[in-house]
Amino acid sequence: MKAKIIYLLIISFLISALIGCGDKNEYPDPTRKFYVNDFADKLSPAVESTIVREAERLYEYSTDEVSQTGIQVVFATFAVESEADIASFYLSDLYNQWEIGTDDLGILIVFYYVGNLDDPDSPIYTVYDFMLGFSMEQYVSPIDLGNMFDETIKLAEDEQLGTAHLLYEILQEIYWEIYDTEFTYDLDYYANTYLPYYDEYADYDDIWGWILYIILSPSSSWWEKGILALIGFAVLGTGGGLARNIGGGGRSGGMGLRRRK
């Protein structure tokens, strides 16, 4: 009798655990970098690195402030066959799944690349979607986003530079609107020095990020990967990652902007 009760309890526990384990997420989880999720594989490593570094810096800055906490700016790219596929994306659901920004202070920027996915040479055009967190609506409006788009991506001949320019403009707006702080950047330096001479190895200030980069990089040799993996686990443990922060629990009410180029 006792054995039967224990057996029933174990079965009930397993069933309830299995039910609880069901993955209800409709969209892919964010990547380890969190601030940049290049699912379409269109962004250059230099731009990805810039996004992660600057978004991380903003987050750290905002968590130091007492009044506002945890602002997150997140980029994502998706490759789709047609605009009908975009219509099936509920961007606010993606925002809410990734929980961008603490206290709903976040911005999600998504680039959709529309074209034949089997043929890389097929004509591809891009649709740009912006989604604001509930609280971010007080500081950044769709009109602001539209103006930023017009001054950056729309004018840019080089999409990588245009993306970085857009990021800098968004940061400038956030720092100014929320903290009354001026954020400056040198786009000429970025275009002429940073982008063409980008050094992936030198870019990691996080030691684990650098080690992971070498281990995963196709250009590093097997002995490099092996030695670094051993040293990494032995000396540093398993902690760390490419982005130090993940979603802050933020939600969006669907306010945003869509543009095409």
Binding site: P142, L145, G254, L257
Partner: peptide, 20 residues
């Protein structure tokens, strides 16, 4: 006019989401 369109898109997007 451009500002108007951006504002309309934003609010209609949010409203559509709220209805859904």
């Amino acid at each position: 006019y451009g500002d108007y369109n951006d504002a309309v898109w934003g609010i209609e997007s949010a409203l559509s989401d709220a209805r859904r």
